[in-house]
């Protein structure tokens, strides 16, 4: 199928059945060691294309208009822009050194980029491709969460072990919350009432009230037969309706399913080896996991909580994101 036809099909499906699980979305996976991007069709679960990108691509995210994909090319010290219609690299953002993860303001700009090497959060205007501000944060910043109302950005720093709360009006830190050791990812719930922060070395997830900045609960994990030190939470995603959270547990090779209302672990799903990041389809029908050590992506059916497929991708998959249509 040509790219052109493919897009028409997506457009048609999108307009006919908005929330149908059969809608065809495009899944993008960054391959950290392969220096490439794997493009997957969410309906057929087949690989459509592999694109060579910059060195050590990790965090990836689509722009709010869905037209471009931002790729943290960590070892090239830049964020690359990929035009999703042509699948060509069309430019770079001045990201600062060693970008690892990024997030985008709900209005579409600016882009918030964690510079792991430099203890900075770089704030970049997307259309102008210009640095607006740099915010000094803790040692080794990594996860970046943006509140749904766009007023707060949260950065986690891995050696300082904090979630830093930054006011997007003033670009200054207004609070810091100590969390478990080596916090790696921050995710706001869709209603903005909770912030989920994973701690890789601590082996926990902190659920924080963004209003009071108090920890509502710290959730631990225990998988029979797996030594606790292998349980290393990295990526976390919460369904839009706020009922379920999924946590990638790294070298424990499992994804934890959490009842997001009771904040209790419901189930552990066996996925590929060294699971890093997670992404839902926009209808929350499927969840894709990147498995760095088995070079594949596991596909979880969210309704039945079953792993339905594993898709071989490039060398050391790390980041994942899914198109909105």
């Amino acid at each position: 199928m040509s790219v052109h036809k493919f897009q028409i099909v997506i457009a048609m499906l999108g307009s006919i059945s908005i929330a149908s699980p059969s809608a065809a979305y495009t899944v993008y996976v960054s391959n950290e060691k392969g220096n490439s991007l794997t493009v997957i069709d969410s309906t057929t679960l087949e690989v459509l294309e592999t694109i060579q990108v910059g060195q050590r691509p990790r965090g990836i995210m689509l722009t709010r208009d869905g037209k471009q994909l931002l790729i943290c090319a960590s070892d090239d010290n830049t964020v690359q822009l990929l035009d999703v219609s042509t699948r060509d690299l069309v430019g770079d953002l001045p990201s600062g050194p060693d970008p690892e993860l990024l997030n985008i303001h709900p209005l579409g700009s600016p882009v918030y980029i964690a510079n792991e090497d430099d203890n900075l959060l770089t704030i970049v205007d997307l259309p102008e491709r210009e640095v607006l501000a740099e915010v000094e944060v803790g040692v080794e910043p990594e996860g970046v969460g943006v509140s749904p109302d766009g007023k707060v950005v949260v950065v986690t720093s891995e050696t300082t072990n904090m979630a830093h709360f930054i006011d997007t009006e003033t670009n200054t830190i207004f609070d810091n919350v100590l969390v478990g050791s080596r916090p790696r990812f921050a995710e706001f719930t869709t209603d903005g009432t909770q912030l989920w922060v994973t701690a890789e070395v601590g082996g926990t997830v902190a659920v924080i009230d963004p209003k009071t900045r108090e920890i509502i609960k710290t959730i631990g994990f225990e998988i029979p037969g797996i030594q606790p030190e292998y349980i290393q939470p990295v990526g976390v995603r919460v369904t839009k309706d706020g009922t379920k959270a999924f946590v990638a547990l790294g070298p424990a090779n499992h994804v934890a399913v959490i009842d997001a209302k009771k904040l209790e672990v419901e189930k552990y799903l066996l996925v590929g080896k060294r699971v890093w990041q997670l992404a839902f389809t926009p209808d929350d029908g499927l969840l894709f996991t990147t498995n760095g050590n088995s070079n594949d992506v596991s596909v979880i059916d969210v309704a039945s909580l079953k792993v339905v497929k594993s898709i071989p991708v490039g060398y050391a998959p790390w980041g994942v994101t899914v198109s909105q249509d």
């Binding site: 609070d175 810091n176 029979p224 797996i226």
Partner: peptide, 22 residues
């Protein structure tokens, strides 16, 4: 390697160790 799955369990940790720094 041994991987037993599907057995839910939960450990609720003390929050006093990781509260805000104010």
């Amino acid at each position: 390697l041994a991987f037993l799955s599907q057995i839910p369990s939960l450990l609720a940790l003390s929050d006093s160790e990781a509260s805000s720094s104010r």
